[in-house]
């Protein structure tokens, strides 16, 4: 009977299927109904795009205004386009050095959690053994409990291994808290990889190790990229964990410095600087996204499908 191979969807080697690629341009002259639908679609999506873009532009514009200007009129353009707010945010919050800390911590944790996460997700998806279901739920459970209730026990774990207030300690913690998310999403992905490939590898005499590293992992690349990007966004913005576990100002990560700055800007009612700080925090992530978005478009379904 009919067989819709789910494995085919995300990763089947090219040529085995005819991918359904929406044409990006050159819509053939269609029927009147088509035109209506197309027009309607464009209208809806353009309205939505405005809904997304306007607030962001408004923030960008406000970041150049003085606080008085912000209060005076939400629409008016700034009287003069000065970078005072940015200079203020950059120097007061000391962004330069914290930026580097953030990069170290996030990249370190990302490598660790992707490594652990992909391995565990693969095993859970590939083998059925007693307790595998319980483990899956354990991963899910890790996503449901509020982090700040775990801070005190976590503090003792880190102190016990001598990594409190250090970047390595923060890396381990970040990695551990990103782990369930990674497994949860990659699990679904590995399940969609065809069993026959693994079996073929086994027939060829490849052990489990080789099967994973030489066959499954390369096939999973799009999914890994997707989860990695999502993790990057999540970890970059993490700020509950470092508050208590990373109290040495030299080791602050960007979000801590930003929170501290935002808090002060809030007290001294400097909304212009606050908006500038917002722009500074968001821009690196936005750039990463724009660079990797093609990767994401091509693979996001893989990461979460089936």
């Amino acid at each position: 009977m009919t067989q819709i191979s789910q494995g085919a969807a995300p990763v089947a080697p090219a040529g085995e299927r005819v991918p359904f690629e929406p044409a990006e341009s050159g819509e053939a002259p269609g029927t009147a109904g088509d035109k209506a639908v197309t027009g309607f679609s464009h209208t809806v999506l353009i309205i939505w795009s405005f809904l997304v873009i306007i607030p962001l532009i408004w923030v960008l514009m406000s970041s150049f205004k003085t606080s008085s200007e912000i209060f005076a009129s939400p629409f008016a353009l700034p009287e003069r386009w000065s970078f005072d707010n940015y200079v203020n945010a950059w120097t007061t919050a000391g962004i330069g050095s914290f930026f580097l800390n953030s990069v170290i911590v996030v990249v370190g944790a990302l490598i660790l959690t992707m490594f652990f996460g992909s391995m565990s997700a693969y095993v859970l998806a590939r083998f059925s053994f007693p307790g595998s279901r319980a483990l899956y739920y354990l991963m899910l459970a890790g996503l449901t409990f509020p982090i700040f209730l775990a801070i005190v026990p976590l503090f003792f774990v880190l102190r016990g291994i001598g990594l409190l207030n250090t970047l390595p300690g923060l890396i381990l913690t970040y990695a551990a808290f990103a782990f369930p998310f990674t497994v949860f999403f990659l699990y679904a992905f590995f399940r969609s990889l065809s069993k026959s490939i693994a079996e073929a590898a086994a027939v060829d005499g490849a052990g489990e190790w080789r099967t994973f590293f030489q066959i499954m992992l390369p096939m999973a690349k799009p999914g890994l990229a997707t989860v990695a990007i999502l993790n990057f966004v999540g970890l970059w913005n993490q700020f509950l964990l470092p508050i208590a576990l990373n109290t040495n100002p030299d080791n602050y990560v960007l979000t801590q410095a930003m929170a501290s700055f935002a808090s002060q800007a809030g007290y001294s009612v400097d909304f212009g600087a606050l908006f500038a700080a917002v722009v500074i925090t968001v821009v690196p992530v936005l750039i990463i996204y724009l660079i990797f978005q093609r990767q994401l478009q091509g693979s996001v379904s893989a990461g979460v499908s089936k």
């Binding site: 359904f20 929406p22 044409a23 990006e24 341009s25 050159g26 819509e27 053939a28 002259p29 269609g30 029927t31 109904g33 088509d34 639908v37 197309t38 309607f40 679609s41 464009h42 809806v44 999506l45 939505w48 795009s49 478009q297």
Partner: peptide, 21 residues
């Protein structure tokens, strides 16, 4: 809308400038 909002003639098509959206 983005994926199948295009013409019904010929291949199933998505919308123009869908990557922008």
């Amino acid at each position: 809308l983005v994926t199948v909002g295009g013409s019904t003639r010929g291949n199933v098509k998505g919308l123009r400038s869908s990557s922008f959206y």
